[in-house]
Design a protein around this nucleic acid. Structure first.
Lengths: 204, 204
DNA sequence: ATTTAATTTGACCAATTGGTCAGGATTACG
DNA sequence: CGTAATCCTGACCAATTGGTCAAATTAAAT
């Protein structure tokens, strides 16, 4: 059995550049709307050079989705059943909002996939996300039953956390346009607002 | 001056079919990712036939966006400064959720435009949406100052209504996949959940 | 029934798209 | 330094894309 060669300096440089450029283009235009020429140009390579590193447009896209899914579930996984319910949920909200602030394009890549009907990530949704959500929903339901937090529908609670945090990434241009100069950076106020919203919602 | 001829039976039929088909395709794939062939096929016409009614792909898309923008702002416009603040805001939430339920593709068309950086609707956002939001934000701020509702950041309140209601349309495939068979129709529970969320949030 | 207007579409077009490939250029390594 | 490996790209390809157009067909008006 042959060991795969370690990645060369140039490979590491160019693969990074390609994925960075592809994230920009795919997150904006989706899979069908993105072109290899756009990605090649944005990465500073020629199209055949880009295809030297990735066999196809599909492969680039798949690599991005794999990266995304590798980290997207971590915040929900971190929800500790043994922890303080309110702190755990507020920490989850904060973590999700931070991700929207720090990885807006990844959020938009995901949104784009969902808008298309999730053709490439439905396996991951059904196979990983759903079981995880089911598990955490049961935890939340237990917390409610024990009177530790208000009685809320666990699934809709989780959806609301996703909706409220991802919105700042996915609809970023709208949020910034509506806020104008006054709200140059929406995230500090968003964090305060969401903290308050969920604190009140969960209060017994 | 020549009066425009009224639309013929066939024109009405075919223009409707084209816009219906185009809404399906554009809301899924965005402008760049959609093709005239797809739209033609979905509308039951040939491509040249489709182009007999609309001069270009751009023109079809523009017609859809014009329709969308014509109705999208109505619920916020209906927020009555003289009404009961809590009832007005809860009515707005309900109306927005109904729109997500009844016009999910329109919501996704809008989301797609925003993900692309809003290249074709930024004039409408800055020229119509922002002034309207500014106006209603001032109303909400007045309500808070008068102690009629809790002191919340008006803009983030409005964003949260958009985020929470549109999510059910935009992320519909994810919501339904996570809920599985148990949540065949998420909207009744969503309405209850959002009523409660905003009731608690706005409570003084 | 005839004429005029509207509608439909196969064939075609230039440009774009996701790729392929051979050969030259650059890099890495002994 | 020489050589092997890696990297790069102009030229090319078939398929697709947003259209165009003239002639045939259908619908509406007289």
């Amino acid at each position: 059995m042959t060991l795969p060669r370690p990645r060369t300096r140039i490979q590491r440089k160019n693969i990074t550049a390609i994925l960075e450029a592809a994230l920009e283009v795919f997150s904006q235009y989706g899979f069908r709307g993105a072109t290899l020429d756009q990605i090649a140009q944005a990465s500073g390579l020629s199209k055949p050079n880009l295809l030297y590193y990735f066999p196809s447009k599909e492969a680039i896209h798949a690599a991005l989705l794999a990266q995304l899914l590798d980290t997207w579930l971590d915040p929900l996984r971190a929800l500790d059943p043994a922890g303080d319910p309110r702190q755990e949920l507020l920490a989850y909200v904060r973590r999700k909002l931070e991700m929207s602030r720090d990885f807006p394009r990844e959020s938009r890549l995901f949104a784009n996939e969902i808008l298309q009907g999730a053709p490439r990530i439905m396996d991951a949704i059904e196979g990983e996300l759903k079981p995880l959500v089911d598990e955490k929903a049961a935890v939340i339901r237990g917390w409610s039953a024990a009177g530790k937090i208000a009685d809320v529908h666990p699934y809709h609670l989780i959806f609301s956390i996703w909706a409220l945090t991802q919105h700042y990434a996915d609809f970023d241009v709208q949020v910034r346009a509506v806020l104008g100069e006054e709200g140059a950076d929406p995230f500090p106020e968003a964090e305060r607002y969401l903290d308050m919203l969920f604190t009140k919602l969960l209060a017994v």
